[in-house]
Amino acid sequence: KFNKERVIAIGEIMRLPNLNSLQVVAFINSLRDDPSQSANLLAEAKKLNDAQAP
């Protein structure tokens, strides 16, 4: 279950337009470290993406 959620979360994070490459890598590394947190990490990535919108 967590592996599928992690793959989906990674794909979504990679498509967030307002994150820089270091932020994307940090979120992906966090997902690798704890796949059970996929939903929480994706939500945090989306919040950061929205906050950094031009």
Results as ranks from 00 to 15, higher is better:
Lys1Gln: 15
Lys1Glu: 15
Lys1Trp: 12
Lys1Asp: 15
Lys1Phe: 10
Lys1Cys: 12
Lys1Gly: 14
Phe2Tyr: 14
Phe2Val: 10
Phe2Ser: 09
Asn3Thr: 06
Asn3Ser: 04
Lys4Met: 04
Lys4Phe: 03
Lys4Gly: 09
Glu5Ile: 06
Glu5Lys: 04
Arg6Ser: 15
Val7Lys: 14
Val7Leu: 14
Ile8Gln: 11
Ile8Asn: 06
Ala9Lys: 04
Ile10Cys: 08
Gly11Cys: 11
Gly11Trp: 14
Glu12Phe: 15
Glu12Ala: 13
Ile13Gly: 00
Ile13Lys: 00
Met14Leu: 12
Met14Gln: 08
Leu16Glu: 00
Pro17Thr: 08
Asn18Ala: 04
Leu19Met: 02
Leu19Val: 01
Asn20Arg: 07
Asn20Gln: 04
Asn20Ala: 07
Ser21Gln: 10
Ser21Tyr: 12
Ser21His: 08
Ser21Pro: 12
Ser21Cys: 13
Leu22Gln: 14
Leu22Cys: 12
Leu22Ala: 10
Leu22Ile: 10
Gln23Val: 02
Val24Ser: 03
Val24Tyr: 04
Val24Leu: 08
Val25Ser: 14
Ala26Gly: 07
Ala26Ser: 13
Phe27Gln: 00
Phe27Leu: 05
Ile28Tyr: 03
Ile28Trp: 05
Ile28Val: 06
Ser30Lys: 09
Ser30Thr: 10
Arg32His: 13
Asp33Lys: 11
Asp33Gly: 06
Asp33Phe: 13
Asp33Ala: 13
Asp34Tyr: 09
Asp34Gly: 04
Pro35Arg: 04
Pro35Gly: 08
Ser36Lys: 07
Ser36Arg: 07
Ser36Glu: 12
Ser36Met: 08
Gln37Leu: 12
Gln37Asp: 08
Ala39Arg: 10
Ala39Phe: 13
Ala39Thr: 12
Asn40Cys: 08
Asn40Asp: 12
Leu41Thr: 09
Leu41Pro: 00
Leu41Gly: 01
Leu41Cys: 06
Leu42Gln: 03
Leu42Val: 14
Leu42Ser: 03
Leu42Arg: 04
Leu42Pro: 00
Glu44Gly: 05
Ala45Gln: 00
Ala45Glu: 01
Ala45Tyr: 04
Ala45Val: 02
Lys46His: 10
Lys46Thr: 06
Lys47Gly: 06
Lys47Ala: 10
Leu48Phe: 04
Asn49Val: 02
Asp50His: 09
Asp50Tyr: 06
Asp50Ile: 10
Asp50Lys: 09
Ala51His: 07
Ala51Ile: 12
Ala51Glu: 10
Gln52Arg: 05
Gln52Thr: 04
Pro54Asp: 05
Pro54Trp: 09
